[in-house]
Nucleic acid binder design. Structure first.
Lengths: 338, 338
DNA sequence: ATCGTGATTGCATCCGCATGCAAAGCCCCT
DNA sequence: AGGGGCTTTGCATGCGGATGCAATCACGAT
């Protein structure tokens, strides 16, 4: 028997005031005499009253809950994101309702649920949102921000001006790819290779594009290319085996790079960085471990999280500008694999 | 302007029936003629109607939301737990509302929030719940299950019979510690050491107890002991440096063991397993990586998650037996560090 | 044709809080 | 003393569904 939680009415009766006053005492900016509010808040504290958020959500048509849909949590980059995100969201007065979608699946599957829960907004990370899903969701005024992802069709001409795009916060992957090429080249590497992750992710594609463009800009031949198909240690390990020719490998992210590093060292007998330089992307905790000392491009997660929350706030406050695509710079972290 | 979601009333009017019927059509077991229900469900699908869970929660006094409070997500064991837990919870019709508490802090801090959201139940993992917090929460009929943790005072005499204890699901850490000792001994190791993690966690303590008891039972001297103070790679790395004497080290969990392994190999020049055997606990993905090949005691996470959800279901169905403490066996996974 | 019974509906209310609107209360000025 | 304008309060109602209870209905039995 869930303890008969005390309600605003109970408190009101106890104080001999109306329920409205109790409600107002808890709504910042409502019209209440200072002493009245103080009196109410005090008794509330004494009697252990706390507004029922469910009821408030129903009445106010705003839940203060934001959905987070995550694809795989197996890439260590995401737990860190999740941790920071829940923290920041909480500080901003939101609670995250967590949805996970099977890796490789689109976030769309979670949309119906999200609607049912009437979340105020949704942040999608480690998964993508189809253009149709986005249109559907944004279509009736809800907001969404893609984290570490780019909206499907973001680069396309405004031909599809009719379909709204979600906001997105990510780091500048193209510039990152560019920096990766420069770093490898600066080390004298010339037989470069790129290892792609999941082919349908903007992260992998943009990083590759930046990498290729940098080489092209220098008049150098395009890099070798391996398709891991997936952002996993195993996939990185597997495809590295095919990269005997390369003397400089840029992996689409750290987890792939770690797998590759182990393959190079333990299976292929190649020394890193003597024989081959390796670069990752993200800067997950393991990259710094002595067993790896992976050089990588660090994503500014704290800043990305802060932007995400700011964006959410602005949207919920009614801002309706065109979709924003925030891009933060990645930073090269040089360790021992370069 | 959040699209004027269609309500049960809208649908009802559209079909010329009462709102109650719509509601009933969506409540399994309610009294509705089969054809009526079919008709309603169909139009619902066509018009895109889905019951507003917030409203339902208010009315039914049950939210179908369960809170998950997590301490640190930095130990890779927990993201995996979280992923499986959200999946299983979802399959059982619950949605997880995620709370994170700063590492080292008790889950109590999240309790007020959890009450406000009127979650049906809470599962606490990677954090502990103080006896007072538990009493407070359970006191008024709510339920809680500790995951990979033991209730504070669970072993104590029923002197505190008045204070209810939360349910708990964990693996049999004592038996695991026992198995660890046996495995090390079987390898001929005699100068054993135990590396403790956070001192206030049941996991670290129980594993240590099992380890010591096993040695004692054989009439062997107690193990050396190092206090990492924390379940982290860095802590494991640091304390391993003090374990020159040991030829067999049992770390309270994998993440500590990985740090220790790197210290032993890269800083101390010791060969594993030639000079020293290392054992961890959990079996996180990294334990299997070629760079480590850590032998460990695997926690049966899928089974633990299943039990957790079953327990939750039973509790919400009204079961009020004494607190349950489910213990599942850990399994020794022998890789190359033994 | 009449009555009893179980299956279906509709009605009215309630869940706990938010909020527009009108009633009251106050302070200050003429 | 009378009136204007602003601040506090209380009232009534709404949010979207769930549900106890009474009203209907359909049918088979007598």
């Amino acid at each position: 028997m869930p303890g008969p939680a005390i309600t605003a009415r109970d408190l009101a009766r106890h104080l001999g005031v109306s329920q409205s006053m109790v409600s107002r005492a808890f709504s910042p900016g409502a019209s209440v005499a200072p002493e009245m509010r103080a009196r109410i808040l005090q008794s509330a504290a004494e009697m252990g009253y706390r507004p029922n958020i469910i009821a408030a959500a129903l009445s106010r048509r705003r839940s203060s809950i934001v959905g987070i849909v995550m694809g795989e949590l197996s890439n260590p980059f995401y737990p860190a994101v999740l941790e920071q995100l829940t923290g920041a969201l909480g500080a901003a007065g939101f609670q995250p309702l967590l949805f996970t979608v099977p890796p490789g699946q689109e976030a769309d599957a979670a949309l119906p649920m999200l609607r049912q829960y009437h979340v105020d907004a949704v942040v999608v990370t480690a998964a993508s949102l189809s253009a149709a899903g986005a249109a559907d969701w944004l279509g009736d005024g809800r907001s969404a921000v893609l984290f570490n992802r780019t909206a499907a069709g973001e680069a396309e001409p405004q031909a599809i001006a009719g379909t709204p795009l979600p906001d997105s916060v990510a780091c500048d992957n193209v510039a990152g790819g560019h920096a990766a090429a420069e770093a490898l080249l600066a080390r004298g590497r010339r037989r470069l290779a790129f290892v792609a992750g999941r082919p349908d992710t903007s992260t992998s594609r943009e990083r590759e594009r930046g990498f290729r463009e940098a080489l092209q800009a220098r008049g150098l031949p395009p890099p070798l290319r391996a398709d891991a198909g997936d952002f996993s240690y195993e996939a990185g390990h597997r495809v590295a085996l095919d990269l005997r020719e390369a003397d400089g490998i840029f992996f689409a992210n750290d987890i792939l790079a770690l797998g590759g590093l182990d393959a190079l060292r333990h299976e292929m007998g190649r020394r890193v960085p003597e024989d081959v330089s390796v670069l990752g992307f993200d800067d997950i905790p393991m990259a710094a471990w002595p067993a790896y000392r992976l050089s990588t491009l660090r994503q500014p997660v704290p800043a990305m999280v802060a932007r995400t929350v700011d964006l959410l706030r602005a949207r919920l406050a009614g801002e309706t500008d065109g979709p924003r695509a925030e891009r933060l710079p990645a930073e090269l972290v040089e360790r021992a694999s370069l």
